[in-house]
């Protein structure tokens, strides 16, 4: 009798402890989530406020929605120009990266030849080379080639710096594909080119999509190369535009315009992310776990 009583009380204490741990864990996780939403939400609300009252009461809702802020932000970002520039360089850079990286990754991971693993390692080496370590000669080289201050030069640079990670991710994807279809195609007498285009590429489509999204997001968000390699106002990308808007804030104190600019940049991103987050996340993790 005593024994069972003891056991229940121990069980109870244990269960209580577990419950407490679980509860505090949930609080930790959800406060993190709420915190992230709160910052985002505050900026979105502030983007509709007036500049002279935005900091008067931080937690107040705007009494009138100042939609004009977004027009200002559009101008500050020079959005018509910068978004086109970004789409051209990031879109072109991503497509070209995939066109070069996919066949290379296929040959490296599926066509066994001597030196394949060494060469794969050589490509992966590029992931560890920070852009800062190449930017000075790169700038000089592009100037020499007449490609500095040009969107074409920036695009080619984007391709070069994206290739290592793209090859790394894609070799992971190709390696994870089953070998049977390849074997069957070889039996049928298909050559490597044929196998690549009509067997492997369709199979690797999810991997291609994920890799291109990751490459595109990375390029969309970078501003070091864009800032250094282009300098005319009409060559600015959207990231540089936001940086300049931020810098101008020191002199104009147009905070609501800045917040509106942030919202303009985030809006399409949030839509895209809600739709594609699973793809992005899974794409990133395949490289790490395969």
């Amino acid at each position: 009798m005593d024994l069972t009583n003891d056991r229940t009380s121990i069980n109870f204490a244990l269960r209580l402890r577990r419950l407490l741990i679980r509860a505090s864990g949930s609080i930790f996780v959800w406060s993190w989530v709420i915190f992230s939403f709160a910052i985002l939400g505050w900026i979105i609300v502030a983007a509709f406020k007036r500049n002279d009252t935005v900091f008067a009461d931080l937690w107040a809702l705007p009494d009138s929605a100042e939609v004009g802020n977004f027009g200002d932000a559009w101008g500050l970002l020079n959005l018509t120009r910068t978004s086109i520039n970004s789409l051209l360089t990031v879109g072109g850079g991503t497509l070209l990266t995939m066109a070069l990286a996919a066949p290379a990754a296929y040959a490296l991971s599926r066509v066994g030849f001597r030196g394949a693993s060494g060469l794969t390692g050589f490509f992966a080496l590029g992931i560890g080379i920070p852009v800062h370590s190449i930017i000075i000669p790169l700038f000089l080289g592009l100037s020499e080639a007449g490609l500095s201050n040009s969107l074409l030069g920036l695009t080619i640079t984007y391709v070069g710096v994206s290739i290592p990670f793209a090859v790394f991710l894609m070799t992971g994807f190709f390696r994870s594909l089953p070998t049977e279809l390849e074997e069957a195609a070889t039996m049928e007498g298909a050559g490597p080119v044929r196998i690549f285009f009509s067997v492997m590429l369709p199979l690797a489509r999810p991997g291609m999509v994920a890799t291109s999204i990751i490459v595109a997001v990375g390029l969309w968000n970078e501003f070091l190369l864009a800032l250094t390699l282009t300098f005319d106002e009409d060559k600015r990308t959207i990231g540089v535009g936001l940086l300049n808007t931020f810098g101008a804030m020191r002199y104009t104190s147009n905070w609501v315009g800045l917040f509106a600019a942030v919202v303009i940049m985030l809006a399409p991103l949030i839509v895209l992310y809600t739709w594609m987050s699973r793809r992005i996340i899974e794409g990133l993790t395949v490289g790490a776990t395969k």
């Binding site: 070069l100 290379a104 030849f113 590029g126 391709v159 070069g160 290739i163 090859v167 490597p192």
Partner: peptide, 22 residues
């Protein structure tokens, strides 16, 4: 030969944009 054709373009751009400047 095919492997070389598959890899060469990516390798060339990589050498030119990343390795040479390094």
């Amino acid at each position: 030969r095919h492997a070389a054709i598959f890899i060469a373009p990516a390798l060339a751009v990589y050498l030119l944009i990343v390795i040479a400047p390094s």
